[in-house]
Write a protein that binds this DNA or RNA. Structure first.
Length: 493
RNA sequence: GGGCCGUUAACUCAGCUGGUAGAGUAUCUGACUUUUAAUCAGAGAGUCGCGCGUUCGAGCCGCGCACGGCCCA
């Protein structure tokens, strides 16, 4: 505490002086009766003719600016609803009280009683009759004009970011609203929200590096889930026909503007539905959410203009490679030529990879980033879709789609494979072909196979990345802008 | 993991060819009873991310490390 800088020392000194004046620094007795937005709303502020509400008003909030004039002062107060102005003068609150007022700092939480009036410039203002310190702040807020812009501090000390950057609060309100609307949409369609384990004995449901942990009493290793898929499907076996889960997945991989080690996914499964129906559902869900959250389906995402108006473009994988990627259809039809093309493009394919994997790599390279407006890609190679149902007419591809917007994958869905024998073979094949990456722990979930043996109804399921959807709808360039407390390395090494 | 960039007062940023630290805001003191980034006068405030090196001398040059950003894998 000896090395506190000057500003922090001043704050502590003032706090002590207030205590000496008999002021309680952290009381919990003040009850605000109004939100600032309700008594000082924007339309009243804009129209100087509109009448103000009568009677005594009681607000509480953080002091974010002070303009003092000796015997009077204007304060800018911020509560959850917004910002508003209060006016305090010595003659109105009394000498003793004004002494306390002069010890208040920017950043303190305080409560105010008063009545509304308009200043000479027309700004609606609370004329304070009495006030009370609610919480003393011992740290100064960032400078008022530029605010807090250092992204490292913004992420590490999100609380400060939220105090001083209103648009950040707005982004997270939108995120919460997106999730609320998503729930509402699914519940209204008779989906049931469920919770499945976050700790898995087998890291299944997706190919990703898991976080490992250990249960001491049971002396067993566990993995934080990389996907809830295999548990949600068990529920279909159990007889729940429409289930969804909105929760965190964990992947022990690199960080980027699009990846956080823990991220939020919606996964949902609908019995007797096909992937084609889920594409329709996705269109309807995302457009309705966007319309409600943003009031429009036009999005400016970074430099790009995106139009979410349905229907969305649909391509098969081969169509996309041909029409967007510019690959000759004759090459696409010939596995050997596809492999050769991938090599020619400099793609590093593992020995066991086949033409399906090669197509995926070519898609990532040549097509993905060009899909700006929402686009469904269908007919994914069976080779890269271990949990998806084969197409009835062409067993080399699956009844699967992925949704791309602004060059990013937003959703992945498919008609579910419910043939236990086929499923078991594919999982075993997948395990057999892995092994080069020691950070992936390949194991077949035989209990899942057993569940399928009891019979899972035909179904379709889908996952939607909530963080990426929130990025799209709030025009956030980094996933860290839509996660309240993104992962950071420790401050001191 | 690789490349590039950044880290200077609480915040936002300057800092020349290497010569020993600057501004605005915030803070403190004084003036001021309708301000709007209030104004006016004055003052204090720094481990220049950390370490090592080069040099008579390093915020600045070199090497290493930490954290962060962007791009790539």
């Amino acid at each position: 505490m000896e090395d506190l800088n000057q500003v922090l020392q001043q704050r502590r000194k003032k706090a002590g002086e207030m205590a000496d004046l008999g002021v309680e620094l952290y009381p919990n007795t003040f009850k605000p009766a109004h939100h600032i937005i309700d008594i000082l709303p924007q339309d009243v502020r804009d129209d100087h003719e509109l009448p103000l509400q009568e009677g005594e008003k009681v607000i509480a909030g953080r002091i974010i600016a002070m303009r003092k004039f000796g015997k009077a002062a204007f304060l800018q107060i911020q509560d959850e609803s917004g910002r508003g102005q209060v006016y305090i003068k010595k003659s109105a609150v009394g000498e003793e009280s004004f002494k306390v007022f002069n010890k208040l700092d920017i950043g303190d939480l305080a409560g105010f009683h008063g009545t509304l009036f308009r200043t000479q410039k027309g700004e609606p203002t609370l004329h304070v009759s009495s006030f009370k310190l609610i919480t003393k702040s011992l740290r100064p807020l960032p400078e008022k004009f530029h605010g807090l812009t250092d992204v490292e501090i913004r992420y590490r000390q999100r609380y400060v970011d939220l105090i001083v950057n209103p648009e950040v609060r707005e982004t997270f309100r939108k995120r919460v609203e997106i999730i609320r609307l998503m729930r509402e949409f699914l519940v209204s369609r008779q989906f049931m929200e469920v919770e499945t384990p976050m700790m898995h004995p087998i890291a299944g449901g997706a190919t990703a590096k898991p976080f490992q942990t250990h249960h001491n009493a049971l002396d067993m290793d566990l993995y934080l889930r990389v996907a809830p898929e295999l548990y949600l499907k068990r529920l279909l076996v159990g007889g729940f026909e429409r289930v969804f889960e909105i929760n965190r997945n964990f992947r022990n991989e690199g960080l980027s503007t699009r990846h956080n080690p823990e991220f939020t996914m919606l996964e949902f499964y609908q019995a007797y539905a096909t992937y084609a129906e889920l594409m329709d559902l996705t269109e309807e869900m995302v457009t309705s959410i966007c319309q409600k959250v943003n009031g429009t389906l036009e999005i400016n995402f970074e430099e790009q203009q995106v139009d979410l108006t349905a229907p969305w473009q649909r391509f098969t994988m081969d169509e996309a490679l041909e029409q967007v990627g510019g690959i000759d259809p004759a090459i696409l039809a010939d596995p050997a030529q596809i492999m050769a093309l991938a090599t020619e493009k400099g793609l590093q394919l593992e020995k066991k990879s086949g033409p399906g994997k090669a197509k995926m790599e070519l898609f990532d390279l040549l097509v993905e980033e060009k899909l700006i407006n929402p686009t469904f890609i269908t007919a994914y190679p069976t080779e890269v879709s271990p949990l998806a149902r084969r197409n009835d007419d062409n067993p080399d591809v699956t009844d699967r789609f992925e949704l791309f917007v602004t060059g990013r994958e937003l959703a992945n869905g498919f008609s579910e494979l419910n043939d236990p024998v086929d499923q078991c073979e594919r999982l075993e094949k997948q395990v057999a072909e892995r092994g080069e990456d020691e950070e992936i722990f390949p194991e077949v979930d035989y209990d899942f196979v057993r569940a399928l043996e009891y019979g899972m109804p035909p179904a379709a399921g889908e996952g939607i990345g909530i963080d990426r959807l929130a990025m799209l709808l709030t025009n956030a360039p980094s996933i860290r802008d839509v996660i309240l407390f993104p992962h950071m390395k420790p401050e001191k090494g």
